[in-house]
Measured scan of single mutants.
Amino acid sequence: PDDEWKERLREAEEKNNWKLFEELARKAGVSEEKIEEWKRRWS
């Protein structure tokens, strides 16, 4: 299951679909801290 969400995150990233990325990350149990960090790195 871990690989599956990583794959989906990669797809979201490729499409630059931040909303989807964020949603998937939350569902995968990624901390808000980590998500914010990704946001900063991404923008």
Score class of each variant (00 low, 15 high):
P1I: 15
P1H: 12
P1M: 14
P1A: 12
P1W: 15
P1L: 14
P1D: 14
D2W: 14
D2P: 12
D2C: 15
D2K: 08
D2R: 08
D2L: 11
D2E: 11
D2Q: 09
D3G: 07
D3Q: 11
D3R: 06
D3T: 08
D3K: 08
D3E: 12
E4G: 09
E4H: 07
E4M: 10
E4R: 07
W5S: 02
W5I: 05
W5A: 02
W5G: 01
W5K: 01
W5Y: 05
W5F: 06
K6Y: 15
K6S: 13
K6L: 15
K6Q: 14
E7T: 05
E7V: 07
E7I: 08
E7M: 07
E7F: 04
E7R: 08
R8M: 15
R8P: 09
R8W: 15
R8V: 15
R8Q: 13
R8E: 11
R8L: 15
L9F: 13
L9D: 04
L9H: 03
L9P: 03
L9Q: 02
R10A: 09
R10K: 13
R10N: 09
R10L: 13
R10Y: 10
R10T: 07
R10E: 10
R10M: 10
R10V: 08
E11P: 01
E11Q: 06
E11M: 03
E11H: 03
E11S: 04
E11K: 03
E11A: 06
A12K: 02
A12P: 01
A12L: 11
A12V: 04
A12S: 05
A12R: 01
E13K: 15
E13D: 05
E13P: 01
E13T: 13
E14A: 13
E14I: 13
E14P: 02
E14L: 14
E14C: 12
K15T: 14
K15D: 10
N16M: 10
N16C: 07
N16K: 14
N16Y: 06
N16P: 02
N16G: 15
N16I: 05
N16L: 09
N16F: 06
N16S: 07
N17D: 14
N17K: 05
N17W: 05
N17Y: 04
N17C: 06
N17H: 03
N17M: 10
W18E: 01
W18R: 01
W18G: 01
W18P: 01
W18F: 05
W18C: 10
W18S: 01
W18H: 01
W18D: 00
W18L: 03
W18A: 01
K19E: 13
K19A: 14
K19P: 15
K19T: 13
K19I: 12
L20F: 08
L20R: 06
L20Y: 08
L20H: 09
L20Q: 11
L20K: 06
L20V: 09
L20D: 11
L20W: 15
L20M: 08
L20G: 09
F21W: 10
F21V: 07
F21P: 00
F21A: 04
F21I: 05
F21E: 00
F21G: 00
E22T: 04
E22L: 09
E22M: 07
E22R: 02
E22W: 08
E22F: 10
E22S: 04
E23K: 04
E23V: 05
E23T: 07
E23H: 06
E23R: 03
E23M: 08
E23A: 08
L24H: 05
L24K: 02
L24T: 09
L24C: 07
A25F: 04
A25G: 01
A25P: 00
A25M: 10
A25Q: 02
R26G: 01
R26W: 02
R26I: 08
R26N: 02
R26E: 02
K27D: 12
K27F: 09
K27G: 08
K27T: 08
K27C: 07
K27L: 13
K27R: 11
K27Q: 14
K27M: 11
K27H: 11
A28D: 02
A28Q: 05
A28P: 00
A28W: 09
A28L: 11
A28Y: 12
A28H: 09
A28G: 07
G29S: 01
G29Q: 02
G29I: 00
G29M: 01
G29N: 04
G29K: 02
G29A: 01
V30F: 15
V30R: 00
V30L: 14
V30E: 02
V30G: 00
V30N: 01
V30T: 02
S31G: 05
S31E: 06
S31K: 04
S31P: 12
S31D: 07
S31Y: 01
S31A: 10
E32L: 07
E32Q: 10
E32V: 05
E32Y: 04
E32S: 06
E32D: 12
E32A: 09
E32G: 03
E32K: 08
E33M: 06
E33K: 07
K34A: 11
K34F: 12
K34S: 08
K34T: 14
K34W: 14
I35L: 11
I35N: 00
I35D: 00
I35M: 04
I35C: 00
I35H: 00
I35Q: 00
I35G: 00
I35P: 00
E36T: 06
E36H: 06
E36A: 13
E36S: 08
E36Y: 06
E36I: 07
E36V: 06
E36K: 07
E37P: 00
E37R: 02
E37F: 04
E37A: 06
E37Y: 06
W38S: 03
W38A: 11
W38I: 11
W38T: 05
W38Q: 03
K39R: 13
K39C: 02
R40F: 07
R41L: 15
R41D: 13
R41N: 14
R41P: 02
R41T: 12
R41V: 12
W42A: 05
W42I: 04
W42Q: 03
W42N: 04
S43P: 14
S43E: 14
S43G: 14
S43C: 04
S43K: 12
S43A: 14
